[in-house]
Write a protein that binds this DNA or RNA. Structure first.
Lengths: 156, 156
DNA sequence: TGAATATAGTTGCAAATGTAACTATTATGC
DNA sequence: GCATAATAGTTACATTTGCAACTATATTCA
């Protein structure tokens, strides 16, 4: 104990995990969003709402927020934007008038049908950078980091 | 071939890698930045500039931008903010008057000396969620994804 | 019942960020 | 050596985002 040679690990930003994660993630998100921003004129929040509703029609805005890990303000604005573009319809819930059932319009479903394969193609291409094993590892690692963040958030 | 049962993989947002990466990364960045935003009143770009200059004093703003993966506008604003807070000093380069040598002031070095261990501690805690092996895997995976994005960017 | 509390969703305002245009200085090529 | 192009850094503007406050409806429980 008290090894006097023990230097403090220096902080090298380029080796710092949160930094590294942030850089690579932003590069990936940026490239992906350029795809559909260019072609469809929609941003990430709108795309997420479409992706959710494409699979689970009739959710409320709050349910979309939960499933998309976005806060309700972001969802509210994305929903308003999509409605304005005629891609989404709201229907007031009769049981609880605070809520709305959200569904993609026909046009919205068309967009979903075009974007979903595009997104999956992007993901497939991205995964060519990894071996099948690494893809599995990454998946598990993300789960563990999320679990860790759950714990961190819990103590707050 | 032609397996008629082969359904198109549906797009499940919660399994979609760019989405998963984005969510976990934002959680981590958010938690980390709360640490030093609360205590030191600085944001991520400023923190990155401090981290770089703490190790490499005298770089120009552009060199900081390269090493921190931020664009030059972001760096310019972070530098101006840090200068305003008295954490950083600029010295016009005599050879090339467009450039400045950037260094942390004494106060800036103090802040660096406080934040660096805090950040490393956060990283260490985060890594308790992973085995040593997984940490190595994640490192390699990030490198490969970055290399892939290099290739993507090159074809642009 | 009805006052207090909680929930769904929206809006307003301020801060953060990105793109493009701009200034100042330096390098290049004819 | 001068016109053109490149580079360092800043500024302006438009967009995005996040937080807090707000409206409307629903729930609780005294």
């Amino acid at each position: 104990m008290g090894n006097t040679k023990m230097a403090k690990a220096p902080l090298a930003l380029e080796r710092f995990l949160p930094y590294r994660l942030s850089v690579v993630t932003n590069r990936i998100s940026g490239a992906l969003s350029r795809h559909y921003a260019d072609r469809f004129g929609i941003g990430i929040p709108e795309w997420r709402v479409i992706a959710i509703l494409g699979r689970y029609a009739g959710l409320s805005a709050n349910q979309v927020a939960e499933r998309s890990a976005m806060d309700k303000v972001t969802v509210s604005r994305a929903v308003a934007a999509l409605e304005g573009k005629g891609l989404l319809e709201r229907e007031r819930d009769d049981g609880d008038k605070r809520k709305s059932r959200l569904t993609l319009s026909g046009k919205g479903q068309q967009v979903y049908a075009e974007i979903a394969p595009l997104a999956l193609g992007f993901e497939r291409d991205l995964l060519t950078a990894l071996t099948a094993e690494e893809a599995v590892q990454l998946d598990r690692i993300i789960d563990r980091l999320n679990a860790k963040m759950d714990a961190v958030d819990a103590g707050r």
